[in-house]
C-alpha cells in the first residue's frame, strides 16, 4: 500500500512504434514500469535498446510515433492527453535532462532567458523581478559560482559541465515530481561527471522527486540507482533493485553486459564478448526470445514461445525461461571469432 501511495508514474504495456516505409516497427515494445517518490530508477541498455525512445514517449516528445498502452501520471493518461494539456505538465510536473549539453541550449538566447522561459511558461503572472531572482536562485542551487554574471552569458561562453548545470537548472525550475535524465554525464569528463551525479542526487533528496536515469554506464548505475530495469531490443528483460541486480543477475543479457565491462576490482585478461550484434529496428525477431540468436548454444527448448516477465523472487523480474539454462562458454577464442560477423 505504501508503495502505491508513493507511486508517481505508472507505465503499463506501452508500445511506441515508428513508421518506416509502409510498416510500423516498435522501438518500445509492451513495456511496463513504475517510478516512486524519491527513488532513482535506472534504465540500462545499449544503443537500439529503446531506452531513449521510452523516455521520449513518457515526455510526449515524439512527433511522429504511434503510441499504445497507458502512461499514468498525476491522475492522467499521457498517451491520450491533448497536446495542450501535456504542454502544461511538461517542464512543470515532469522535466528532462539531456545528453549533450553542447547542443541542448539555444545558441542565441542568454542563460537567464532560457531558464526564465521555463518559469514563465508555467506561471504567466510572474513579474520580471521575481523571475530574475528565481533564476539567480536556481543558478546558485546548481552550483554556478557567479550566477549574476552567468545570467547574461550565452551558452558558447560556458564549459560543458556548466552548461549541463544550466540544463539541470531548467529542468528543476518548477520542482517537477518526475525527472528524466537521458545519459546526463556521457558527454562529460569523469571528475565533472562525479560532480553532476552528486548534484542530481542532492536535488532528488531535496525535491523528493522520482528520477528515471537512462544510461549505458554500469558504473554510474551502481552508484546512483535504487532500482534497475535492463532493456534489450525494445523490451524489458530484467528488473530488480540495485543490489540484487549486481549480486544476482539472471537474464543472460544482464550477465553478459556485466561481464563485458573492465572491472577495476578483479583482474581479467579478456573481456566477455556477446556474439552477434543488436538487431536493427526493422530486423527485430517478432516472436520468441529476442536474445536467443546471441546465445546459440542454449537449446531452443530453453526459451519460452512467448517470453513473459517472471517474478523469480520478490520484486525481481526476468523475461523468458532461458536464464535457467544459461552459462557462459569458456572458449574465448571461439567467441572472439563469432563476435565479429
Amino acid at each position: 500500500m505504501i508503495l502505491l501511495i508513493n507511486q508517481i508514474l505508472n507505465v503499463s504495456n506501452l508500445t511506441t512504434s515508428f513508421r518506416i516505409k509502409d510498416d510500423y516497427y516498435a522501438a518500445v515494445d509492451n513495456v511496463s514500469l513504475q517510478v516512486f517518490k524519491n527513488e532513482v530508477l535506472a534504465i540500462v541498455g545499449e544503443s537500439g535498446s529503446g531506452k531513449s525512445a521510452l523516455a521520449f514517449s513518457i515526455m510526449g516528445l515524439h512527433t511522429r510515433a504511434k503510441m499504445e498502452g497507458n502512461i499514468y501520471f498525476k491522475g492522467e493518461d499521457l498517451v491520450n492527453l491533448s497536446p495542450a494539456k501535456i504542454n502544461k505538465m511538461r517542464g512543470k510536473d515532469m522535466a528532462m535532462i539531456f545528453q549533450d549539453p553542447l547542443t541542448a541550449l539555444n545558441p542565441l538566447m542568454t542563460i537567464g532567458e532560457q531558464i526564465g522561459e521555463a518559469l514563465l511558461l508555467h506561471n504567466k503572472a510572474i513579474t520580471k523581478k521575481s523571475r530574475y531572482e528565481q533564476v539567480i536562485k536556481l543558478l546558485q542551487l546548481v552550483g554556478i559560482a557567479r550566477p549574476k554574471y552567468t545570467y547574461n552569458q550565452f551558452p558558447h561562453e560556458l564549459s560543458g559541465g556548466m552548461r549541463q548545470r544550466v540544463i539541470i537548472a531548467i529542468a528543476i525550475s518548477n520542482s517537477p515530481e518526475l525527472l528524466i535524465a537521458d545519459e546526463p554525464t556521457t558527454a562529460l569528463d569523469v571528475t565533472i561527471q562525479a560532480q553532476i551525479l552528486d548534484l542530481i542526487r542532492e536535488l532528488k533528496n531535496e525535491m523528493q522527486a522520482g528520477i528515471i536515469l537512462i544510461t549505458h554506464d554500469l558504473g554510474v548505475v551502481a552508484e546512483m540507482a535504487d532500482r534497475i530495469a535492463v532493456m534489450y531490443a525494445g523490451e524489458m528483460v530484467e528488473v530488480a533493485d540495485v543490489h540484487t541486480l549486481f549480486e544476482n543477475p539472471l537474464h543472460p543479457y544482464t550477465r553478459s553486459l556485466l561481464n563485458s565491462v573492465p572491472n577495476s576490482k578483479q583482474k581479467q585478461d579478456r573481456l566477455h564478448v556477446i556474439q552477434g550484434v543488436v538487431p536493427s529496428l526493422q530486423n527485430l525477431p517478432r516472436t520468441g526470445c529476442r536474445f536467443a540468436h546471441r546465445i546459440p548454444w542454449v537449446t531452443e527448448t530453453a526459451h519460452e514461445k512467448m517470453p513473459q516477465m517472471h517474478e523469480v523472487e520478490p520484486q525481481h523480474y526476468v523475461r523468458c525461461t532461458c536464464y535457467k539454462h544459461f552459462d557462459f562458454l569458456e572458449k574465448n577464442k571461439e567467441d572472439h571469432k563469432h563476435g565479429i560477423s
Binding site: L257, S260, P262, L271, V273, V277, H336, I340
Partner: peptide
C-alpha cells in the same frame, strides 16, 4: 561504442 562492442574491439586490439 556500446559496452559490449567495446569489449569486442579491446579484445581484438590485444590479439
Amino acid at each position: 561504442l556500446d559496452v559490449s562492442v567495446q569489449a569486442q574491439v579491446l579484445n581484438f586490439m590485444q590479439d
